[in-house]
Design a protein around this nucleic acid. Sequence first.
DNA 1: ACTAGGTCCTGGTTGC
DNA 2: TGCAACCAGGACCTAG
Length: 284
Amino acid sequence: MPELPEVETLRRDLLIHLPGERVAGVEVLRSDSVGYPADPAVFSAQMTGQVFSDRMLRRGKYLLLYFEQGAAMGVHLRMSGRLLWRRAEAPLEPHTRVRIPMASGHELRFEDMRVFGRLWLIPVGVPPERVMGGLARLGPEPFAEMFDGRYLAGRFAGRNQPVKSALLDQQLVAGVGNIYADEALFSSGIHPALPVGGLDAAALERLHRAVVKVLEAGIAQRGATLRNYTDAQGINGNYAGTAWVYGRKGQPCRVCHSLIERIRLAGRSTHFCPTCQCAQQSVQ
DNA sequence: ACTAGGTCCTGGTTGC
DNA sequence: TGCAACCAGGACCTAG
């Protein structure tokens, strides 16, 4: 379920714990959770002995954790993945898929109920996108300078896709998922079903600014649902609690008090305010 | 080339 | 209470 803000929050937290930690061994409890090398035994063997460095990069929703020796571990949490930092003797979480015990007695755990998430081992000298296919197809980072209204205009020209679907396309911009897409569209006053080709320059500029704004707000609040894995209790992020439209079907809009509606777009639930996000003209 | 839809997997929630 | 249907924040693959 994590989107860019949750993954960025995770990156910053891992930066506190992982650098200098030596991998003492790896236990793959579910082989589907390892993307490369396909053989879990090889994955484990190549991970063992690696020492985490402080080079940790995020691209969209992907995470790259580099080792001192030059190899790296790639991570994608997809819908339900979590990385947990625990003492090795702490009770195992129900859906733990991979255990990575450290020489220090701590342990990095990959927990993932739905088994959509993946870990990859990227060998020294191999470009990460060779191993993690999705990386190569990612669009610009939302905080990159080139991501602006004009970029969107260029990408949207002559296309009919609903704007909500376009935002979920990682090739357009990397890191936006269902929650932040809905929030960004509300913030920019754009109806999620509008075809992208019909949006004028002003609307596209509002959209670009809204995407940046909601993602920055999400990071500032430590993500929507990410639990604080350093805390045995687990602390939920609070963005979802302050959402303007996401998950608020039937509740009054915080701006105009119209009832928030939910429709299905691109196969995903989509929330919007029928008044603030007028299908015809721009609002706000 | 573009777009919609199915699919991977598991568990929580909802409704009868 | 029991059970089935539906729902879930991602991304890949296929087909039209």
